[in-house]
Design a protein around this nucleic acid. Sequence first.
DNA 1: TTGAAAGCGCTACCAC
DNA 2: GTGGTAGCGCTTTCAA
Lengths: 348, 348
Amino acid sequence: MAVTIKDIARAVGVSTSTVSRALAGSDLLPPGTRRRIEQAADELGYHPNRVARALSTGRTGNVGLLVPDLLNPYFAAVVKGVQARARESGHWVFLTDTDEDAGVEADRVHALVKQVDGVVLCAPRTSESRLRALARETPMVMLNRRVAGIPSVTTANGEGIRQAVAHLVALGHERLAYVAGPRASWSNRDRLCLLRTAMAAAGVDLVETANVEPRFAGGIAAADRILEAGVTAVVAYNDLVALGLLDALGARGVAVPGRISIVGFDDILPAELVSPALTTVGQPSEEVGRAGMDLLLRLMADPRLLPAPALEPVARLVVRGSTGPAPGSRLPHGGPAGETRDLRCNAR
Amino acid sequence: MAVTIKDIARAVGVSTSTVSRALAGSDLLPPGTRRRIEQAADELGYHPNRVARALSTGRTGNVGLLVPDLLNPYFAAVVKGVQARARESGHWVFLTDTDEDAGVEADRVHALVKQVDGVVLCAPRTSESRLRALARETPMVMLNRRVAGIPSVTTANGEGIRQAVAHLVALGHERLAYVAGPRASWSNRDRLCLLRTAMAAAGVDLVETANVEPRFAGGIAAADRILEAGVTAVVAYNDLVALGLLDALGARGVAVPGRISIVGFDDILPAELVSPALTTVGQPSEEVGRAGMDLLLRLMADPRLLPAPALEPVARLVVRGSTGPAPGSRLPHGGPAGETRDLRCNAR
DNA sequence: TTGAAAGCGCTACCAC
DNA sequence: GTGGTAGCGCTTTCAA
């Protein structure tokens, strides 16, 4: 049987109330008593029962974290960031993975909310109304998604995307494709929208291809459509898709960047290592996780923090070998594209 | 305020005991009552309070999972496997990452054990005696490590390593290096030991280099030592190290596999995508996680399962471009190496 | 300054 | 079959 405050109380000759107070760090009691209690706790090997404490206080000391797919290094980094910040504040993290499945996501979000002090959600497939309803029950921070009334951390991709477009335009590309991620994904819509804006401003054509799943396999699936689209450059929803595409194009003997240039999003490790290495709009993934957890902590400490602050770490383009001059172009011409008015995307 | 069984009891006109029983699925009560209770629970939006249940039953329905580093895709996959199996059984997973730090690992293991029904540990840096002591307090499964008396899931690398050595020998390599991982790591010792055995049997020389941290940076750090070692092939502790090495050798203009062949362990995604692609002893990572969680469930259901069953999914060599003929060798000679007596490694 | 006691929500034992 | 009730270990009034 585990040691309880009762045991300590008996050993020291005080009541359980006093023990509880002493251990809680109250300074309304004689330093002597307090020391004796702490010492007894130490000697007996006492460890507070977090479950009992939770039942009594209503706070568990746990937070929930939901991500679509741990095998995506981007989310692994986000989890790492959340976990690191949670560890600093003494919180434990319930992690759940949804396999990029909307049904699973819905179930898990719902169950998670009931048993923690707060949640950090990377839930691209759950409806806004549902999220708002859940956010009323527990402190909630959204990652990579904006929902009115819910605090969030989203990456500011405007600048990174403008840089990417400017880069491609400077290389002579005039017609490019976007390989879209999940249709319902906020990030996907945001990227598409920013991309349209930046490209319209730069005066180049955007071909939008069908949505693919946000994994390596999705990129492979997109290859044929890209070839049919008659573009010289493609921006992929994320690095996994870009890598799949790169792989499939290689298998078909299509030169990258000789015939087609590729840009991804995220800057996961493999993007740096493949050849040609992937030009990508790097996301501050671990920072997104850490900032999300940090925001949640502030929210839990003071619910009046609502309405919703929203953090936006900035993404920047990382230029590598997968982008090069457009096949038909004479010379790389022009510098970075001019000022682009930032049309509001995704209802910001 | 949340809905409790009291509310349901009042609404239906029965006692809380009856409600509790009905919701627990007891069939000793009139189907009618039971249906009315379930319906009321539904209408009122009842959700059991897991904390209260845990305090009363002593079971939380949660399990702990500790891994050294989520940024290593190998561990991300292990986590995914554990999580998937846990989800099936209705358990929630506390995840913690230790940043490959022994001190953090010790703290976290200890704190974790106190608040869950069981733990799955990937804890290469905690002492055996300490682990055994903790294993007496709670059901525990070790991953990638054998500790007498504790159930475990370890990958059987003997065959994969014999295949790797046979492969290299067939390519004409006669002197190779092992880039060791953390000295205290069980996996590192196991791999080194199996490698020594296999190489002794094949009659080739093994140069053991200093230990490096099991990350990309560790591989980069190992490059110079490898070049000084005068070997034509190297086996790295894991793929991240192998990738770092590959990268650093490339930066120094050393041809792979032209001048040096490289073999890793794990078969993480980047290993497949770099060029040359990495020859590696593929680990069934997600399966290790899933099997570990499965074993834990069996252990929690029946503690008499001890003493310790140990599962061993098998690793197999995946041959890719990072291995080729040894520089001095005429032709690839010989087939796979002959039968190798499997000297007991790591006190199995 | 300290202690007694009432709960937190649920389960499970023991009567009826 | 059903209900009363005693906890699970801790926190937190409220009194003294």
